[in-house]
Computed example of a mutant assay.
Amino acid sequence: MIYVAAPARYDTMPRRRCGRSGLCLPVLSLGLRHGFGEDRGFEAQRAVLLRAFDLGVTHFDVSGTHGPPAGAAEEVLGRVLTRELRPYRDEVVVTTKAGGSAWRGPCGEGGSRKTLLAGLDRSLARLGLDHVDVFHHERPDPDTPLEETMGALDAAVRQGKALYAGVSGYSPELTRRAAGVLRRLGTPMLVHQTPYSMFDRRAEDGLLDVLDDLGAGCVADAPLARGLLSHRHLRSAPEGSRPGGDAPPLPPGETITESVWERVRALEGVAERRGRTLAQMALAWVLRDERVTSAVVGATGVAQLEEDVAAVCALDLTGAELAEIEPHARAD
């Protein structure tokens, strides 16, 4: 059966401009960190991707490290992009990253020019594309000069293999320095992707202010704290849906204690009084700040995706609701 996208796909999904650039993103983006790879059936993954597009989620966020194995998520996305979504390629924003641990050997991770440009070439081959829309350095590398790393991002754009450059996980100070290097090279920093949730508020410690000053967008990663803010009665949730994976749900040094569960339950109560799920309220909370361009959600099935997307129908939180949330919007 030939796929035809839903005609109403742009009717309900809000969009925000990415910083002061001309690029607009949906307020919810689909991340392929979990639920995509060889350990899951292709048809289920295909169904999530196409349903996301039908719902107006036109930004797909992936990395050369996503799987298992590493790169498998890009292969899945590539199959869908080159088949069902080929007629809609100009509507889709594809973000990929390099610099994480993507292949064996000393060049498989880091911030060197070789690592980033080789990683991008591998990603393009798996995606079946001649360019991605946004190319990120996945995480800071203190062992590589910043000028070399930013020079590689600039080269990717100048070679036509990416339209925009971004970074992930950089501190406010390093973000400002990186943006300065890119600006001098002639390739502005489009976006910074960073963890941001009720239980991880490090982005508020200067990063959002820096991005606003630079005119760069912010994409919130893990807005549901790796699942901690998604499931009712998490301690009895299926093992595959518990917080964890390749990144912790809380900032470094913090653990999931009984007081964290108490906050989860308190936040559930606030959400129920709003007539929303905890996940929907958590997404609305992250998006309450207009400096946040988009929040990346993951989905292992269509039902989970649809529940999260329903959050866009109730993004407005009243002052009273924010005040009720605030005492519990922290880890410990």
Rank of each mutant, 00 (worst) to 15 (best):
R265P: 00
R273D: 13
R274D: 03
D246M: 03
W285K: 09
A279E: 14
L278Q: 09
R263C: 05
R276G: 04
V260Q: 15
A271W: 01
V286M: 05
S259P: 04
L283H: 10
L250K: 11
E268L: 08
E268F: 04
S241Y: 03
D289C: 03
T255A: 05
G253P: 07
R274N: 01
L278N: 13
G244F: 02
G275D: 08
R288S: 08
L287R: 07
S259V: 09
G275L: 10
E268I: 11
V286F: 09
P249Y: 02
P251N: 00
A279L: 12
D246C: 01
M281N: 04
G275W: 10
R242C: 04
E258C: 00
D289K: 10
L250W: 09
G244W: 02
R265T: 14
T277Y: 15
R274A: 01
W261F: 15
A282V: 08
L278D: 13
R291Y: 14
P248Y: 03
R242F: 09
L283K: 04
P251W: 01
G245L: 04
P251K: 00
P252K: 00
I256V: 15
E239L: 12
E239G: 01
A284I: 12
E272W: 07
P243E: 07
G269R: 15
L283V: 11
G253W: 02
G240I: 00
R242Q: 15
V260I: 13
S259A: 15
G240M: 00
S241I: 09
L267D: 12
W285E: 10
S259M: 06
P238V: 01
S241R: 13
R273T: 10
P251I: 00
A266C: 09
L283D: 13
S259K: 07
S241Q: 14
